[in-house]
């Protein structure tokens, strides 16, 4: 394995700017997806507390709105992770590999 230099590249240089851009992109996506998960879950929790009769309403026999939304929250968690992993395995890993080659 190639050993990279221990010091960060000089400020303003091209590799340094590329790394900073990548860090910013990762942080923005991570933050957006975290806020999305938090909002979906907080929304569900508030419905549980405030809209009990609504959530007990059946859509079809056996399936209440509450159970359907609960399953949807779990599926949302899977979908958000899928979005992140797809981005990270693609763009992120390619950029990291390019930066490591220097």
């Amino acid at each position: 394995m190639r050993t990279l230099s221990p010091d960060p590249e000089p400020e303003g240089s091209a590799p340094r700017r590329a790394l900073e851009a990548l860090a910013l992109a990762q942080w923005r996506l991570a933050l957006r997806l975290t806020v999305a998960m938090l909002s979906v879950y907080a929304g569900f929790t508030l419905l549980v507390a405030w809209a009990k009769p609504l959530l007990a309403t059946p859509i079809v026999p056996g399936l209440s709105i509450g159970i359907a939304l609960g399953v949807l929250v779990i599926v949302t968690a899977w979908v958000l992770i899928w979005i992140y992993v797809r981005w990270a395995n693609g763009h992120y890993d390619r950029t990291v590999a390019a930066l490591r080659k220097g």
Binding site: A42, T45, L46, V48, A49, W50, K52, P53, L55, A56, T57, P58, V60, P61, G62, L63, S64, G66, I67
Partner: peptide, 30 residues
């Protein structure tokens, strides 16, 4: 699974498929 949930609602009332007393206060729930 829906047939199972429907059987639960039939035997123990439709409210078992909706929220009960565990979460009463929205702030507590959050």
């Amino acid at each position: 699974p829906l047939a199972l949930f429907a059987a639960a609602a039939e035997a123990h009332g439709g409210q078992v498929l909706g929220p009960g007393q565990l979460v009463a206060d929205p702030l507590d729930a959050l």
